[in-house]
């Protein structure tokens, strides 16, 4: 069964990964390759790296940063930011990207989507749509202009699918960095409008926010930008929270026994048996358990 992906988004500004709040406030966090290294170690399913300065500066995604990121972990990478041509896409795929992400370019030059899809395959092309609710509808937000444009998000998403995009990366401007949860209405509308996978981002602050998306919408992937930097093993603990709270399905195929969860464990460390405090952080373990650990040896995993 295809799992739902837990994805980290690294927003890059001034050459470093930053926290993004409302598409206007940015807080410096760390270097991209260190983030990739640790997110990979923590079993993240995929990483999206978006350089938000690139378009405005008239350049493409920095190739050295792409190389450093690709060399830092064993996770799929989607790179985006200022990509304007097939040649640039080819360079990025060569430097270690698995997929590339188009934002402004998809709107200004829709032909690029179909051209790139033909050359590299739809599975390499992600279109990123930033959405904001204005006058009773979800409109596309142009981050370089700093405001919405007169394009309906659903129409645009459908158009991108027709042109050959493989995935939609959907961002909610209003929820960005607020830590109050995702925009479930937006997510449901877009997931119903297209038949290609949709990844959603914007608003994660607590593991239950991810759970809400998984239970109430049909997103193929749930992403967060700021959240995964907040605590140690954030990805693993969050996955554990989700796995505990989601119904585990019996496998349909009679040839294969056992169960499956839509959240895939990807790391040696799994936080089994953990409980969570109100902030969604791992709570203290039982004292008897801690006592029992005095005589336990836990080896490192070596492949």
């Amino acid at each position: 069964m295809l799992g739902t992906r837990l994805i980290a988004c690294l927003v890059v500004k001034n050459g470093i990964a930053v926290q993004s709040i409302g598409f206007s406030k940015y807080l410096p966090v760390c270097r991209v390759e260190i983030a990739v290294e640790y997110l990979s170690r923590w079993g993240i399913d995929e990483i999206v790296i978006v350089d938000i300065d690139a378009s405005r500066a008239g350049r493409s995604f920095d190739l050295e940063m792409a190389q450093a990121a690709a060399g830092a972990g064993f996770v799929p990478l989607t790179l985006g930011g200022g990509i304007k041509s097939v040649a640039e896409i080819r360079m990025l795929l060569k430097q270690g990207a698995d997929k590339i992400c188009l934002n402004n370019s998809a709107r200004l030059n829709p032909g690029l989507i179909s051209e790139a899809a033909k050359v590299f395959g739809s599975q390499c092309i992600v279109v990123s749509i930033d959405a904001t609710f204005v006058d009773g509808e979800y409109k596309v937000y142009d981050y370089s202009l700093g405001r919405e444009i007169e394009t309906n998000v659903l129409d645009f998403a459908k158009e991108c699918e027709k042109l050959g995009a493989g995935e939609i990366f959907l961002n909610s401007v209003a929820n960005d960095g607020l830590k109050q949860g995702f925009d479930l209405d937006l997510i449901n509308l877009v997931c119903k409008a297209v038949s290609i996978p949709v990844i959603v981002i914007g608003g994660a602050g607590h593991p239950s926010h991810f759970l809400d998306v998984l239970k109430q919408a049909k997103a193929s992937g749930v992403a967060a930008g700021n959240y995964f930097h907040f605590f140690e093993h954030s990805v693993i603990a969050t996955k554990n929270y989700l796995r505990k709270n989601l119904a585990v399905k019996d496998l349909v195929d009679p040839n294969i026994k056992g169960k499956e969860s839509i959240i895939r464990p990807n790391s040696y460390v799994d936080y089994k048996g953990i409980s969570f405090d109100e902030m969604g952080r791992p709570a203290k373990k039982d004292e008897d358990f801690l006592e029992s650990q005095r005589f336990e040896f836990h080896p490192e995993e070596i492949i």
């Binding site: 069964m1 295809l2 799992g3 599975q123 493989g166 038949s195 996978p197 499956e260 895939r264």
Partner: peptide, 10 residues
């Protein structure tokens, strides 16, 4: 079953 088939599958 959306296409492309993208993600983690058993």
């Amino acid at each position: 079953f959306r296409v492309p088939h993208v993600g983690w599958n058993t």
